[in-house]
Design a protein around this nucleic acid. Structure first.
Lengths: 168, 168
DNA sequence: TTAAACTTTCAATAATTATTGAAAGTTTAA
DNA sequence: TTAAACTTTCAATAATTATTGAAAGTTTAA
């Protein structure tokens, strides 16, 4: 496999993976492109490489910056903005874990807690089951989120160490 | 909060969570409904509760069965099929981990491995970076997948134990 | 067997989500 | 200041994904 082929395959695969985990394809592909690019790329560069519009590029680059996995760079004597990916894989995982926990898991935990602690005068079968099952889900989700928090607050290489322990 | 309100809140929240992780809303909501239901429900019951069509119900119930987290049940002297959720939270996590690993992670790992092991005569900066970065991603994804495999092959309560160790 | 009671399939359509591109906004060099 | 070089916004549109519902298929009781 040649460089160009490998690059295209990686970018496209990353886009597909993103989609199946609820991440916009363009966002995932821009990330992939920057991830393997030795230097920062301009808006034009990204548009050109991925064949997407200026607006699309602008919005998705901003989202990546919001997620904390892409940075703006400037070049002396150049008015364009350039974008570079966070290159450390631990830090990438850390940021993604952090954002997904904050945006999606924590709100669900709040609801699960709320729903699993209803009190009804007449304790019907249905109510008991609701409480029991949502409580179980609350506990699982909570444990997984605490694990994500650990990843988020990791010191460098923490995750590798733990994962190693995990899989050994 | 009353039972009905709690139920609706749970079902709707589970649907939203599903969507943001790439799982069809109807599928997530049917799962939520069965998860908290003390008895198995018929197609009609599900259609009625969630206000969705017969076709939609049929397809998504089948998917849940494919995922191994919903079972068919029959009642003596009744021609309808009834559907019941796997009720054990560990087993639910186990099955979801298994399916997502198989369907989404493992194929990506294969591509990452392939892409990260290209060889080019002329080793340009770009090629080096591609290899380095996709290799790092390969290793991370692989570790996470091995972790999922552990969850998948867990004995009962294995996960709880490990998660406890993790978060303590 | 047959016909009633169910489930599944799938083309049409609706709903949602992503993308475009032009206009508006911003920044900076001169 | 101004105007060129950029970026962002957002309404319109395209693409994708989910849903419907009627027709076809299947199962079972009689």
């Amino acid at each position: 496999m040649k460089y160009e082929e490998a690059k295209d395959k990686f970018i496209s695969t990353w886009g597909v993976l993103g989609s199946s985990w609820g991440i916009n394809k363009a966002m995932a592909q821009i990330h992939a492109l920057l991830w393997i690019s030795p230097e920062a790329l301009s808006m034009e560069d990204i548009m050109e490489e991925l064949q997407i519009s200026r607006g699309n590029t602008s919005m998705n680059v901003r989202q990546l910056i919001d997620w904390g996995i892409v940075y703006k760079e400037t070049k002396a004597g150049d008015r364009k903005e350039y974008f570079a990916s966070e290159k450390n894989v631990q830090e990438l995982a850390r940021q993604v874990a952090k954002e997904r926990s904050k945006r999606e898991i924590k709100p669900v935990i709040r609801i699960l807690k709320e729903v699993s602690s209803i009190k009804e005068d007449e304790e019907s079968e249905k109510t008991k089951e609701l409480i029991k099952q949502t409580k179980a889900l609350y506990e699982l989700t909570n444990s997984m989120d605490k694990m994500l928090d650990k990843v988020v607050n990791q010191e460098k290489n923490w995750m590798t160490k733990v994962l190693m322990k995990f899989i050994s």
